[in-house]
């Protein structure tokens, strides 16, 4: 809903108020300064524990190369875990969102309420209880175990978000597909999913970011170095090598890249996701 009104309003020609734009840029500079500093520090690997200059003097990429040596494997782990989590998340949440949006199920409201309530369960409480269960099931230190836990970060959000979009699919479209002899599953895969592409992408992006950013499950559900995502990698590295800031910041830049890429590629989906998922 929010996006529709935004779009229609944006059509109106903006008044040329560049003074406001300048102020906006200033605010943005202040907000993004820490991220600039991250990149800046990463490009001055020789600064170590000294003060960092305001701008890098040249393109010293040795911080990045040592970060790739130290954290390259962990970055790949993060990628694998996050992608796995997205697949699990969408596989569970897309059908559920459809069912809750279109079938007039008794109890659907309760499920939606329950989904909203999950947001109040602190992650550390989940980890606390999950750990011993994971030990029993042999899921500690496993990729699959971490993928499952990380998928749980995205599922409630994905259900709420996709449901709010799927409600808008006209019943006639679904009925027409079923009259044509398509089963419920076929209708879902062939008609509903393509029509919900945008919400599917948004949910996928967010569950990717949630899983990629996860630190707590990585920290608590792993006892060895076997499965170590980059968030955990950086945290442990900084504990052990206090002085090596250039390399740490380079690793941080690499860990922040997915966020930046997603923001550039999928700007409108992300804004819609934040508002759509939390207000509706």
């Amino acid at each position: 809903m929010a996006t529709i009104t935004n779009a229609t309003r944006a059509v109106g020609r903006p008044k040329r108020r560049w003074g406001t734009t300048a102020l906006g840029m200033l605010i943005l500079c202040v907000m993004l300064f820490p991220l600039y500093w991250m990149v800046n520090t990463a490009l001055q690997p020789d600064s170590g524990l000294l003060e960092v200059d305001p701008v890098p003097h040249g393109l010293d990429l040795s911080g990045f190369s040592s970060a790739l040596t130290e954290q390259g494997g962990h970055l790949l782990t993060s990628l694998a875990v996050a992608l796995g989590a997205v697949v699990i998340c969408l596989a569970f949440s897309a059908p559920a969102a459809y069912g809750l949006a279109q079938f007039k199920l008794r109890g659907a409201r309760t499920v939606v309420f329950g989904t909203l309530i999950t947001q109040m369960v602190p992650g550390i409480v989940i980890a606390n209880a999950l750990y011993s269960t994971y030990v029993h099931l042999g899921l500690v230190n496993s990729y699959f175990g971490l993928m499952l836990a990380d998928a749980s970060l995205g599922i409630p959000f994905a259900i709420v978000l996709m449901r709010s979009f799927m409600v808008a699919i006209p019943r006639e479209v679904i009925e027409a597909a079923e009259v044509d002899g398509a089963g419920r599953m076929r209708t879902f895969v062939r008609v509903v999913l393509p029509m919900s592409r945008n919400s599917l992408i948004t949910a996928g992006l967010f569950s990717f970011l949630y899983a990629w950013s996860d630190f707590m499950f990585a920290l608590t559900l792993n006892t060895t170095d076997h499965v170590k995502p980059v968030t955990l990698g950086i945290y442990q590295y900084i504990g052990a090598h206090v002085g090596d800031w250039g390399s740490v910041m380079a690793a941080s830049v690499l860990a922040a890249i997915p966020a930046a890429v997603l923001l550039v590629l999928a700007q409108k989906y992300i804004a819609a996701g934040i508002t759509g998922g939390s207000v509706k």
């Binding site: 970011l209 950013s213 630190f215 968030t231 945290y235 922040a256 923001l263 700007q267």
Partner: peptide, 17 residues
């Protein structure tokens, strides 16, 4: 849109920075 960046960066990364 750019303003969103601090929120999208992993929290551990922000903390370290």
């Amino acid at each position: 849109a750019l303003m969103l960046l601090p929120w999208l960066v992993p929290m551990v990364v922000s903390g370290i920075v």
